[in-house]
Design a binder for these strands. Structure first.
Lengths: 212, 212
DNA sequence: GTAGCAAGCAAGTACCTACTTGCTTGCATC
DNA sequence: GATGCAAGCAAGTAGGTACTTGCTTGCTAC
């Protein structure tokens, strides 16, 4: 089948690109990494540029930064920790590829943009969640939410992309997610318990908050 | 003089490298950017690798991330805002170069490390400052200082390096420094006024804090 | 069996790359 | 004016790059 060999080439291209970048990802290297004749690359994808474009697209499809989908069963803290952990995992898995793509943004800006949209919508999903916490009285109303979210996203990108080249600039890897989430909560004023009183509007249906 | 032409080559190499990276920074391009014969590069630096190494070193020397040197006249907030502003300025000036160097860390890890040491010592200077604020009662004692600092550094790197490719993921450029500083202050519990009472040891000489 | 097709293989094209060599030009010093 | 030196210039070397062409091999379907 042609499909199997096609995927083998795409996978090999991803590995080679992640290590050597666009210029360094020669057709020769990719072919030998995929254990395929070099001519097959051109017959299958037409050119090196088209190959790498297809490879980047295949890496992005269904592979974006995870959105925050809150679980009513969990506390705000646990929701945040879990999401941070997912985002960190995802970014770390694609760290080399992202680093290369971003590093070459001057020369091929379109490639970098694809990945960016995903991450900004992930940030947006966090904003939505925080606004809900706020109207439920779980978060203080007078904090700079957007800046906090922006900082948390930068933090997770920084951790995932640069931990391996400057390891002592970050919290230990096994507690990073919760430390980020907790520090973030302080920054944007997310409380464990809701605001003491005020005219907090009761939620619609389906919530299980019976607290005072 | 040979010195002038040498600097012209180094500057040109920096520009070309910032745009094309190591592989893309061909001796031909650098020579033409410096308006110098290509042979002169080899006579002056020996090889392309030595040239670019010299260029990176010349960019780092006396050019590290600024350390936080607090001004007793200013409030903690103003000290932090000022420092953040300096760091952001510095990082933005070298953004392209840093991005390329970090993107190529897999292939030339030593080059990336040089820049990293500087920035981690900048973070360390912030920790020192915060510990002083804490013992003066200007900061809460029970917050995760290291994580906060790590997040602030990541934030500033992220802003400086990625703002141009994802502009709406960050606060407006003219207020970014103060928003980061203020959000950071919340996160690590830096107050405008010192702790209410306790057995706070009085500072040595030269301070002007007469508050209770 | 044979026709079609996907892949391998060997070789070649045209261009770019780092780097070298031999020679000329201009300037500054004695 | 002769010497030395830094730079330019033209040409060449050896190898890598993307990409092409022509032919062979092996498998699958009718």
């Amino acid at each position: 089948m042609s499909e199997e060999i096609r995927n083998r080439i795409l996978d090999a291209a991803a590995r080679v690109y992640a290590q050597y970048g666009f210029r360094g990802a020669t057709t020769r290297r990719i072919a030998s990494e995929a254990d395929v004749n070099e001519v097959t690359l051109f017959r299958t994808f037409g050119s090196k540029a088209e190959l790498l474009e297809a490879m980047l697209q295949s890496q992005v499809v269904g592979n974006g930064v995870p959105l925050l989908t809150f679980d009513e069963e969990l506390s705000a803290r646990d929701n945040l920790v879990q999401w941070c952990s997912q985002v960190l995992d995802h970014l770390r898995q694609h760290a080399h590829l992202i680093r290369k793509t971003i590093g070459e943004a001057e020369e091929r800006p379109d490639a970098a943009c694809a990945a960016c949209e995903r991450s900004s919508s992930a940030g947006a999903s966090l904003v939505v969640y925080l606004e809900r916490l706020r109207e439920d009285g779980y978060a203080e109303p007078d904090t700079d939410l957007e800046t906090g979210v922006s900082m948390l996203m930068s933090t997770m990108f920084g951790d995932a992309l640069y931990r391996d080249i400057m390891p002592n600039a970050f919290p230990p890897i096994d507690v990073a997610a919760e430390r980020y989430a907790e520090t973030f909560m302080r920054a944007v004023g997310v409380r464990a318990a809701p605001m003491p009183v005020r005219s907090r509007p009761s939620r619609v249906a389906g919530t299980r908050r019976r607290d005072h």
